[in-house]
Design a protein around this nucleic acid. Structure first.
Length: 621
RNA sequence: GCCUCGGUAGCUCAGCUGGUCCAGAGCGAUUGACUUGUAAUCAAUAGGUCGCGUGUUCGAAUCACGCUCGGGGCUCCA
């Protein structure tokens, strides 16, 4: 709604001729005059149609606010289409205009000019600073509050802890001794109680290491990645994609935006408690995907699938998925509005097979996180299901607990609120006792129907598959967050923080003592391979060593006259050092190479993301 | 959406009971000297309408109000 508000000495109108859209009015209403009145010229717009009651309330409030400011007791409601290029239907406009007049007439003397007539009018504007104002009202722009979001509050959860003996204990009865992180996680989930007043450590690290940074030019929660950050992220993405390929998943790519009015998608939006980014494109309303479900399910709908292809897996590394999280939820890279999520979907022939896949993907998720540097003790497990599902699959659930050999948090629902009957998540609990979900798998019993996805069984009959959603690692940014937080925790414990060698932007740094050693340094870098760089800046050795330490470089090799003589390298090994005493070792190039090969074997690889000579590198921060 | 803190040089910040120590420091950048042996070599140079606007005042980075952007918290969290 567009409002133009004019404080007038008087406003006078006369309806001359009806247009096609004209509302029917008595002759007495065709003329009118108000003295000392606030005149509200109003254009009702397309998106006001979504919630007319709210628009009436807000519109009336805005007008009343201004009326109070200028101390006007009379209000003229005057339809004025020319304030907007995106008008509502006439019926809606009349409804809203009448509604506003009704509301305002409780406290003011209100007159309304008829809608849809050619009118002559005379207005005398007072000309003081507040006498001409305009307002735009756009209720809930960019926000569709889904039914799921609304109903979520109503879902009744029972919180339990499932221990290693298969006992399901009330969460508040459980003895958390020896399971402090699980307790923190449970508190976080159940009571939602937490008091934190510090910036989480990864925020400083992500910037200082020149990995990731805020981008003020975008929306909050949309980050920029510097070369080192892009490298780390890319390596993690590839790790997950490789793992998915090992599981037999086919990589696909799907659009990042979809039509809001698409019937299937519309229904799905209502089942997913997330806020969307909306885009107005010409006549269409589009939303940015918050996962890859749509693309893959729409693809699945069009596919011809034989039972022979099942279980059938597709994965997309969604760069990006978008969720318009509330402003205050965003912290560093823990929670973002644009994030990279590996999203894999599996079609299985029946629940039996779905459960089997669930278990495999549970194991695969543990593997992926371990390879990324997060062990089972670094996260807590939550398993959520409906009562019915648990009754039928009690032993299966207990088996999941056996695999990780520690108690897990259980959330149980009387009835199914969402599209899934069973899900697990791995939650990282950080030094500030905040929990965030990493890997997750869900068994979906709804969307095969919704998207009309079928496979043909042995007898030639069309059957509905059971679907699984899986993010083997969770959002890649969040894995980076967890890795950095874990490093920060180590450094609190007096250890030297570092990224694993395969993830380190610089794997080996060669420090020539004087200019005459640079040639050898260059030759060595060539022989070594890996991500080896050379600190050829005009600085002292001490300074270069310090800088390499600040960058968390795993191997630092100093080259001087001695090394030229002996052919050995003086290598400082970060993983074996402590803040007080660096672990220095003399080794040959081959020995170093062997070490690196061992530490990076089977892991994704990318070349150095920056110039090999440090003297040629720009600074990003 | 609410609460709270903040915006001064590329970065981190000091100054903020209003007035030639107010426009500063360290880091970084540039230039020069040094050719260096394991956590900061020395010196010089360049860089800022102190977030924007309005007001108070003889005078505003400093006080007031409004706006804006950002951090954190709450709410929220698949």
């Amino acid at each position: 709604m567009q409002l133009l508000l004019i404080h007038s000495d008087f406003i006078e109108f006369e309806a001359k001729r009806p247009t096609k859209l004209a509302e029917e009015v008595e002759d007495s209403a065709k003329k009118g005059r108000l003295d000392e009145a606030l005149c509200a010229f109003i254009a009702v717009e397309k998106f006001d149609e979504d919630d007319t009651d709210a628009v009436i309330a807000e519109g009336a409030k805005q007008v009343a606010d201004v009326a109070n400011q200028v101390k006007a007791n009379r209000i003229m409601i005057y339809p004025y289409a020319h304030l907007s290029s995106s008008l509502s239907t006439p019926a809606t406009a009349v409804k809203i205009l009448k509604g506003m007049a009704d509301v305002l007439s409780e406290n003011y003397e209100v007159m309304r000019a008829p809608f849809g007539w050619y009118k002559a009018f005379t207005i005398s504007c007072k000309g003081h600073p507040l006498s001409e104002l305009s307002r735009s009202i756009r209720l809930g722009e960019g926000e569709v509050v889904s039914e799921a979001l609304k109903s979520e509050a109503k879902a009744v959860s029972y919180w339990r802890v499932l221990d290693l003996d298969g006992n399901l204990v009330d969460a508040d009865q459980f003895n958390f001794e020896g399971h402090t992180n699980l307790q923190k996680f449970a508190n976080y989930e159940i009571s939602k109680a937490r008091a934190v007043d510090k910036v989480p450590p990864h925020v400083e690290l992500m910037r200082r290491l020149e990995l990731v940074d805020y981008e003020p030019g975008s929306d909050s929660g949309n980050m920029r990645y510097y070369p080192k950050g892009r490298l780390v992220k890319s390596l993690l993405e590839n790790l997950v994609l490789e793992k998915a390929a090992d599981m037999g998943a086919m990589e696909v790519e799907t659009p990042i935006m979809y039509d809001m009015e698409h019937p299937t998608l519309k229904k799905y939006l209502d089942r997913f408690p997330a806020r969307q980014y909306q885009i107005d494109s010409d006549k269409r309303k589009l939303f940015l995907r918050f996962a890859a479900c749509f693309g893959q399910f729409l693809m699945g709908h069009d596919m011809s699938i034989s039972y022979k292809s099942l279980p059938l897996k597709m994965i997309e590394m969604t760069r990006y998925s978008f969720r318009r999280e509330q402003r205050g939820e965003l912290v560093g890279i823990r929670r973002l509005r644009a994030f990279t999520m590996p999203d894999m979907h599996t079609m299985t022939r029946d629940m039996y097979s779905a459960i089997e896949e669930f278990r495999k993907q549970y194991l695969a998720s543990i593997d992926v996180l371990r390879e990324a540097g997060l062990e089972v003790e670094d996260y807590e497990v939550a398993i959520r299901f409906t009562q019915d599902f648990y009754k039928e699959n009690q032993e299966f659930i207990a088996g999941l607990v056996d695999i990780i050999k520690k108690p897990v948090l259980i959330e149980m629902w009387d009835e199914r609120f969402f599209y899934f009957v069973l899900k697990f998540e791995f939650n990282f609990v950080d030094t500030m006792d905040k929990a965030s979900a990493l890997s997750t798998v869900q068994i979906d019993v709804e969307n095969a129907d919704r998207y009309d996805i079928n496979y043909i069984d042995e007898s030639g009959a069309r059957r509905r598959p059971i679907l699984l959603h899986c993010s083997p690692s969770g959002a890649i940014e969040r894995v980076m967050y967890a890795i950095l937080e874990k490093a920060a925790r180590l450094s609190l414990q007096g250890k030297l923080p570092m990224l694993e060698t395969w993830l380190s932007p610089t794997q080996v740094r060669i420090i020539p003592v004087a200019e005459r050693h640079q040639e050898r340094a260059l030759a060595l870098a060539g022989i070594l391979g890996f991500r080896t760089d050379i600190d050829d800046r005009d600085e002292t050795v001490g300074k270069k060593i310090r800088d390499a330490g600040r960058e968390w470089v795993p191997y630092v090799a100093v080259i001087g006259d001695e090394e030229l003589q002996s052919g050995q390298l003086a290598v400082t090994i970060r993983s074996e050092s402590t803040p007080k005493s660096p672990a220095k070792k003399s080794m040959t190039v081959d020995e170093l190479k062997e070490r690196l090969t061992g530490e990076t074997k089977g892991k994704p690889w990318r070349r150095l993301p920056l110039a090999m000579r440090l003297s040629e590198r720009p600074r990003f921060i």
